[in-house]
Write a protein that binds this DNA or RNA. Structure first.
Length: 274
DNA sequence: GTCCTTTCCTGACAGC
DNA sequence: TGCTGTCAGGAAAGGA
């Protein structure tokens, strides 16, 4: 399940592999993947002939800057990009094929078909609904303490739910939300507006820390995640709570528990986190 | 405006 | 073995 560190790893891989390439043909095999434009034929026709100038990321969104348009892509749960030779048969989970030259294709695969793509004009990018409402990136100069603290004070729901809210901080998903709260020793069911000033500061530091380390490790591979080179991430070796229910806490030795918070599987140490 | 629920989707796995 | 039910979850839409 790609979160910010995984998407960043996909981005850097794709930039090395397809920057400067021209899309010479396009085929959509599962129409619902394309959110915009409405008609699949419009997507296929418009994208052909465009060169991939660069690839950006905002939160968990990939942003392909093309010569005329912009392709916004969200991998959701299991979306992945692969560059493959044209003669390699595509799997049943291949939903979009962008031909790059006479030899290679950029293929979008997605077992659960949750991922979405939007092809829009450059002028629409700044005000695109998906991107416009995103909160700051989880970096030192982006996630400023004062607005963060104000946002938490306004929320009468669990801190776990707030961390998953992309308008507060962009890019945190279920795995890193659990890891961040463990790092900060905060119980996932604590209400956001109940956190003390020092706790908010600790939480902010944990967000920056966990995300920085995960990006450096190339992300976390749970289930099927791979970057554009087909490589897995390495951060799963550093996970302290996610997927560790029933095992011992690395800090205090007590048993990691799994509960449901904000409809999500949530892992935490009942002794360390309060 | 905020919060909560539902929907999208398939594979893995448990239980019978 | 083969079937059924449950679970995994990010974002968007709709309702309270």
């Amino acid at each position: 399940m790609p979160e910010l560190p995984e998407v960043e790893s996909v981005r850097t891989g794709l930039e090395k592999l397809i920057k400067g390439k021209k899309i010479t043909n396009a085929k959509v095999l599962w129409p619902r993947i394309i959110a915009e434009p409405n008609r699949i034929e419009d997507f296929e026709q418009r994208i052909v002939g465009q060169t991939i100038h660069s690839i950006d990321r905002r939160g968990k969104f990939l942003i392909f800057h093309l010569s005329k348009d912009v392709l916004i892509s969200h991998l959701r749960m299991e979306g992945k990009y692969r560059i493959e030779k044209k003669d390699v048969p595509f799997s049943k989970h291949t939903h979009v094929i962008l031909e790059l030259d006479e030899e290679a294709e950029l293929r979008y695969l997605d077992v659960r078909k949750f991922g979405r793509m939007s092809l829009i004009e450059h002028s629409e990018l700044e005000n695109h609904p998906s991107l416009k409402k995103l909160g700051p990136e989880p970096i030192e100069e982006g996630l400023l303490i004062e607005p963060f603290q104000l946002n938490l004070k306004k929320r009468k729901k669990s801190i776990k739910a707030v961390l998953l809210d992309q308008t507060i901080v962009a890019g945190i998903g279920n795995i890193y939300a659990d890891e961040i709260l463990y790092e900060a020793s905060i119980h996932p069911e604590r209400y956001a507006d109940s956190l003390k000033v020092e706790e908010v500061q600790t939480l902010r530091t944990a967000i920056l820390d966990v995300m920085r380390k995960a990006v450096a490790a190339g992300g976390t591979t749970i289930r099927t995640y791979q970057n554009a080179f087909g490589e897995t991430g390495a951060y799963q070796a550093q996970l302290n709570v996610y997927g560790r229910s029933g095992l011992n806490c690395r800090r205090c030795g007590n048993t990691i528990e799994k509960i449901k918070v904000a409809q999500r599987g949530t892992h935490f140490c009942p002794d360390c986190q309060n």
